[in-house]
Nucleic acid binder design. Structure first.
Lengths: 356, 356
DNA sequence: CTGAAAGCGCTAACAA
DNA sequence: TTGTTAGCGCTTTCAG
């Protein structure tokens, strides 16, 4: 009582009626037919080679070569509910901060045939819902956020999607799912203590105004104030804010403004190495000696930091490792292994060089 | 004579046998049922809202809200042969050169609900086939290459996949499909002429050894030699090569080596602004005045270029526009419009600042 | 404007 | 080790 005859697919006029096939694509069916096996055997020969006979495997491989077949991962993903896709959400591609993490993530995932799709959220929390929709719609096997999710709605949506989520570049006690990062709030106090130990009496912070940078800056200013080494009267007045997309020039002009305001300044914590580079340039232009007159500490330990003049003292975070671990966590989850440590603190360290 | 009864989907024990449904996902069926319409009407309410009645549209939207439905784009892509995915192949994510292009591409595509997947090819042409397989397997609606494809096999594979391809960041007369870029070979002569006009008598080039940088460098050295303004005796000896992943420090040490070898040097063309930054640093350390003793020209016009000391004279290419145009080209193709200009030369320009 | 039927190309489940 | 069957969730085709 079969309704459709599937064998004998040779051009029977009756079956020619409806074909939605994309332009001449070779399908697994074609390969199987050519190899003289069933489609599922061909499928297994590709995806689980050790489960089919050597004979079958070779015939399938030959057929693949002959036809130039490329498996349709869309179809495979739909059938198996595994897309081998991981989505990464980043505020912006511009800026070197997250690049290393994405690079490491991409490489780790590529090892096992996974790919990365990217979504840009922007720093302004807008469109975020739309972006999440587009991402969840692809049914990725994992989602990596650079930074923690902001909106409550977004968090609920992510939590409810049944997709492993790794938040990175931050540390909070209750992530949506998993987390690999470090505490921005802990960095400020350590840098403040470091600068005091270096003999600074009047420090300030020059920071981008994106959320995480602000937390580093504020924790720094508060700690410095508690240590009574702020250049301004209050913690707040010892902060100078920069628009989120910083550059050398922005840092430079920002320091100029800061220095005009607090000329007795003898130490500055910058929200990034790029900003610090600007500070170094402006300090030099103003005849300030670093570190004698002014101690400078950056953040990020970017590639150029050791080569600046003087070499930049900075806060190092292991962007690479965060990406790799994020990939590991997701892959473990996908493999069904229970992840016992859902929170990974990769920490940070102050790299002492010449500038402070 | 129907073989399967599809109506009455209420829990009939017989139909419980096989369910491969992923964990409790809401499907379009569920939404349609709740809205009291057929699945196809629900589909249209989502994708072609103006083709259904206002009544139906609203009921579907309400059902979507109630259920938290997110369309499965995997299934949609498979059925429609349109994945709304564009793949971009980049040598490496590290390095700011291509980022702006990818950023612009991503933004342009996001406007129309497309997403970008990234593949890293590495500079060594290895694994390229594997990568192409992974990409083509996703059936993206377009592929953007940063740089032209290298291997003949890869070119054939791309050409045969029936997917719009845009090569970028280069200019060749016979691209696989479409191209938006500029001629690296034309840059060298222009920079050489520029430096001669600036009074340089003995110039050299400090370049990364990746393919496109090499072409800029060689065309520069050849032109300079023809103008009789090379620092070395030959065009070749006026080139200093750096490993492809450059940094400020690499540039700096590279210039030191170059200067040791050719101490009479009075002008240098760098393969990137980053390298140029290193040259500026090393020149300063050696007491060379820029531009009086040494003219320096960079490439890329990165964000920091105008803020260096002195401001960097550099070759500007519109990375942003390349990304936007690449997106436009693909979208046009996808829409079935014939693209008349398959080759777009965005050109380049020399931005004169203080360093040369 | 709406719907029934029939796949898109692949793999999970079950059986042999 | 191999095959049969029945979907995965959506959209196209064709017909109201």
């Amino acid at each position: 009582m079969k309704s459709r005859v599937k064998t004998q697919p040779s051009a029977s006029p009756a079956s020619t009626r409806k074909s939605r096939r994309a332009h001449g694509g070779v399908t697994l069916q074609d390969v199987a037919r050519l190899a003289g096996v069933s489609p599922i055997t061909a499928s297994r020969a590709i995806n689980q080679p050790d489960v089919v006979s050597e004979d079958a495997r070779e015939r399938v491989q030959r057929a693949i070569r002959q036809t130039g077949y490329t498996p349709n991962l869309l179809a495979g993903s739909l059938a198996s509910s595994r897309s081998r896709l991981v989505a990464v959400v980043v505020p912006t591609l511009t800026g070197p901060m997250f690049m290393e993490t994405i690079q490491a993530l991409t490489e780790r995932l590529a090892e096992v045939g996974y790919q990365v799709i990217i979504g840009q959220s922007g720093y302004d929390n807008a469109r975020e819902d739309e972006l999440l929709n587009a991402i969840i719609g692809r049914r990725p096997d994992g989602i990596v956020l650079t930074g923690v999710a902001h909106s409550a709605k977004g968090r609920v949506r992510l939590a409810g999607a049944g997709i492993p989520v790794v938040e990175t570049w931050d540390f909070i006690p209750t992530p949506i799912d998993m987390l690999v990062g470090f505490s921005h709030d802990s960095i400020g106090p350590e840098v403040a203590a470091f600068l005091r130990q270096r003999g600074c009496k009047r420090v300030a912070v020059l920071s981008a105004d994106d959320e995480r940078a602000v937390r580093r800056a504020k924790s720094f200013a508060a700690a410095a104030h508690a240590l009574r080494i702020t250049a301004g009267k209050t913690a707040n007045s010892s902060c100078e804010w920069l628009p989120a997309l910083t550059s050398l020039g922005v840092g430079r002009r920002g320091f100029a403004a800061l220095f005009e305001r607090l000329p007795k300044l003898d130490g500055v914590f910058c929200s990034s190495d790029v900003v610090a580079q600007g500070v170094l340039a402006e300090a030099q232009a103003r005849g300030l000696r670093v570190p004698e007159d002014l101690a400078v500490v950056g953040f990020g330990d970017l590639a150029f930091a050791p080569d600046l003049h003087p070499p930049l003292t900075t806060v190092r975070v292991d962007a690479n490792e965060m990406g790799r671990i994020a990939g590991d966590l997701i892959l473990k989850r996908v493999a069904g292994e229970s992840v016992k440590t859902r929170l990974v603190d990769v920490g940070f360290s102050i790299v002492e060089r010449g500038s402070a």
